[in-house]
Design a protein around this nucleic acid. Structure first.
Lengths: 138, 138
DNA sequence: TATTGTTATACTCTATAACTATA
DNA sequence: TATAGTTATAGAGTATAACAATA
C-alpha cells in the first residue's frame, strides 16, 4: 500500500506517541495506575504543597477533569490534601504514594530506555529539541 | 513549578503530538473534516480500489471503528464503493472527494510547514528518523 | 471580579465481543 | 477456518457551561 502519510511529520508524531503511550499504559497497569495518574504523582512529589489547579495548568488537563483523577488517587490513599486558604488544598504524597512513586520511576526509566535504545545517540538531542520547539510553536 | 516530565521523551512526544493534532483539528474543521477523515481520503486517493480493511490496518484503526467513519464519508458523497468479491468493497474518491482532497493537501502542507519552521533544518532528518525508530520499536 | 474546586454532560477515540456472509 | 464488514457497547480522554465558596 502506498502511504503518503509516511512523510508527514504530524502523522508520524501521532503514531510514535501512540506506540509509546500504549506501551506505557500496559507497563503502568501492572501497578494499577494509568499514565496520567503516574504523571500526577511525579508532579506532586516534585512540588509538595501544590494545588489541583497548579497540576491542571502544568499538565494541560482541564480543572474539571482533575476532579475524578484526584478523587481516585485519594481514595487509594496515595495522595493527601490539606486545606490551605478555604478554596484551595495543598497536595502531598502519602507514604503509600511515595512507595508507589518509586515503582513508577523504575518503570518509567525502563520504558524510556527501551525506546531510546532504538534511536541513534547522536539524534536524541535533536529529537528532544525538536519536540520542545513543536510544543512551543503555538 | 518543578517539572521532571520535561526530561521525559514519552511525555514530550505526547504533548508535542497533542499540540499538532489540536491545531490540525482546527484547520480541518474549516473544510468539515476531522484529521482521521482526512487521512482516509489521502490513503484512498493513493490506493484507489483499496478496502476498508486495508485502510484499517494501515492506519491502525480497528475495523469496527472504520464503519462509522466510512459511512460518514459516503453519506457526504466524498467516497464511493463498489462490491468486489461479495465480502469486500473497492473504495474510490468521488469527484467531490478529489476536490476536497486538494484542499486537504493545501491545508496539511501549510500545517506541516508552519511547525517545521520552528525546527532547525539540520534536526528535521534526525526527528523523522527517530520517530520511525520509536514507531517500530515494538 | 477572578480563582478553586466541583457537578453534569457530551463528544471523540479506542477497545472488545459477537454476529453475518463470504472465501 | 479465516476474512470483510457490521452492530453494540464500554472505557478513556477531553471539552464546555454553570455553580458555590472564597480571595
Amino acid at each position: 500500500m502506498i502511504d503518503p502519510l509516511e512523510s508527514q511529520l504530524g502523522y508520524q508524531l501521532r503514531r510514535a506517541s501512540a506506540v509509546m503511550m500504549s506501551e506505557l499504559g500496559t507497563v503502568m497497569a501492572a501497578i494499577g495506575l494509568r499514565p496520567t495518574e503516574a504523571t500526577i504523582l511525579i508532579l506532586i512529589n516534585a512540588n509538595p504543597g501544590c494545588t489541583q489547579s497548579n497540576l491542571s495548568r502544568q499538565l494541560a488537563i482541564k480543572r474539571a477533569n482533575m476532579v475524578p483523577l484526584m478523587a481516585g488517587l485519594m481514595r487509594r490513599g496515595l495522595v493527601a490534601r490539606e486545606r490551605m486558604d478555604g478554596r484551595s488544598h495543598a497536595l502531598t504524597l502519602t507514604q503509600a504514594g511515595e512507595a508507589l512513586l518509586a515503582e513508577v520511576q523504575v518503570l518509567v526509566n525502563a520504558h524510556e530506555a527501551r525506546f531510546l535504545a532504538h534511536v541513534a545517540p547522536d539524534r536524541i538531542e535533536a529529537l528532544e529539541a525538536a519536540l520542545k520547539a513543536i510544543r512551543n510553536a503555538v
